[in-house]
Amino acid sequence: MVETKNNIAIEINDLSKNYHGMNKMALSSLNLKVKKGEIFGYLGPNGAGKSTTIRLLMNFIQPSSGRATILGLDVVKDSVAVKRKIGYLSGESAMYPKMTARQYLNYMRDLHPVGDMKYTKELVKRLNVELDKKIGELSRGNQQKVAIVQALMHKPEVIILDEPSSGLDPLMQEEFYKLLEEAKSRGACIFMSSHILGEVQRVCDRIGIIREGKLVAEQNLLNLASSGITIFDVTFKDRVDQKALKNIKGVQKVETNGSSATVHIQGDLSPLLAYLSKQNVSRLETKTMDLEELFLHYYQKGGGSK
């Protein structure tokens, strides 16, 4: 989809967050755009800044600088209007343990009226929610299903998910992914943080990788294979000259193990091939980068920065 002003759902400009009393920025000059009808995966380990970004978008915390808009509305100044269009789900969904799921959903519906009850009923049925049990008596996964219903029941235009599928069994995860795809086909934008790479690869169109509060990569998953990074597993007959490999143009990373080397190269392969043609190579395998390798690439020491 071509990026125009009208089809941007989430726009983040130089958004930073520095928590009081912390030396390090929790989020540093984040710039990001997510389109309508797109599922964006936001990756990073614990403490990288994923939840900080989401809490800023939800106006739970205040930015130190920069701004973010959702559907053209400022997340701080127009917070209430923004939330009319948002569905939010946290992986650590905290609900009222003494309420039944039905009472909880009624409460949430009172706070954010749902026009069409049919869809709520459909969600309850598809996710097999136990409506008349107290939330405190439900398992972690069943609580998460209630939280999913409250986030999606008003058919939001933007869905913000923070580690959404934690606790769901594989069948329910699959149903949840279908719900996200249906929302996407309605034109909803889904912004989803996760560290479950399989989940992200399964549902997301595009990802962003965050490390120590900085966005270090944005990648379209549909084109991940053509991302430009190729991995060579090479076995030499002689000793590996790691320094020579590292000096080849385009080489991003070299890992050696005895006479074997794994070389990550971006862009033109010919300098590496030219070098290898002059060596005694006994085995050569190439593969394109998958999400896990991309993630590790950016997370290992010295990984690229955007």
């Binding site: 917070s79 209430v80 905290a94 706070l111 954010h112």
Partner: peptide, 14 residues
């Protein structure tokens, strides 16, 4: 403390 406030403020309420 229980984090239930997140769900309340994720709804259109100032």
């Amino acid at each position: 403390q229980d984090k239930t406030i997140d769900n309340l403020l994720s709804k259109p309420i100032s």
